[in-house]
């Protein structure tokens, strides 16, 4: 409870400092709007529905692309850990592509798919899939061999060993990879939305882009705050419960 309070005080202090600087008029309000005018913009955007609509468009793209990235990446990661040939081929490719900034996929996606939802989907999947493959593979590789040996002596074989020993043992790595995949997916989607206009739906990235076009700094900062909040909430809702579970079971609390 007191930790939440401390976080609240910290953010309140940040906003207060911002308000003071804006009030001092060191920079033009066109460049540094006050927290109040940003709040007014957000309120207006909520009222006329643009924010909600754009948020839904973006989150839908993110959810579908991320889910697809996971369902491709997890099995491929398992196979890569298991099959030497895949490790030497796909593993290497994944390692290289994981390091590629995912915005680099955007030009290719545009040429292949045009200004369509498919291009967005492709960019998000490419952002997710490689880091999930890498994390799953190294998770499986880092499972102490004694677990599998112990399981074998108790009669566990094949699929049972994978489902009941290897996967749970690799879970800390896999969750880490899922989290990283999520961050990459989120970044690549924002890059794509800022970069390309797609008529089938205006996402948060587009709002940000038009904020710049219109020189509307309150919009730019307002949308950035929304993106920040989405990132935080996703972390707390999607990953924090897993991480709590892992800490409780593995006892790897950093405190």
């Amino acid at each position: 409870m007191s930790r939440t309070l401390k976080a609240l005080i910290f953010f309140a202090a940040l906003v207060a400092a911002w308000a003071l600087v804006a009030r001092a008029r060191i920079w033009s309000p066109v460049l540094l709007p006050s927290p109040w005018s940003v709040a007014l913009y957000l309120l207006g955007a909520v009222r006329d529905g643009t924010l909600l609509e754009a948020g839904l468009v973006t989150l839908k793209r993110l959810a579908i692309g991320y889910a697809a990235g996971l369902s491709i990446g997890l099995p491929l990661g398992l196979l890569t850990a298991r099959v030497r040939l895949l490790q030497d081929t796909l593993g290497l490719l994944a390692l290289g592509l994981q390091a590629l900034p995912s915005v680099c996929w955007v030009p290719l996606a545009l040429l292949w798919f045009g200004q369509t939802e498919a291009a967005m989907f492709f960019v998000v999947v490419m952002g997710t899939v490689w880091s999930v493959i890498i994390a799953t593979e190294s998770g499986i590789r880092n499972v102490p061999p004694i677990y599998a040996r112990a399981a074998r002596t108790m009669g566990s074989r094949g699929l049972h060993t994978w489902v009941h020993v290897m996967l749970p043992a690799a879970l800390p790595f896999i969750v880490g990879g899922m989290k990283q995949g999520w961050a990459f997916a989120w970044r690549s989607l924002m890059a794509a939305e800022i970069y390309v206009t797609i008529l089938s739906g205006f996402g948060l990235g587009h709002l940000l882009h038009y904020g710049r076009e219109l020189n509307a700094m309150d919009q730019v900062i307002g949308i950035m705050l929304v993106l920040l909040a989405i990132g935080l909430i996703a972390d707390k809702v999607l990953f924090a419960p897993w991480e709590r579970l892992l800490r409780r079971r593995w006892g790897t609390d950093s405190k």
Binding site: I146, Y147, R149, A150, V165, P168, A169, W250
Partner: peptide
């Protein structure tokens, strides 16, 4: 085994 090889999960 020498290490307990118990499953932490």
């Amino acid at each position: 085994f020498q290490e307990s090889a118990l499953f932490p999960w």
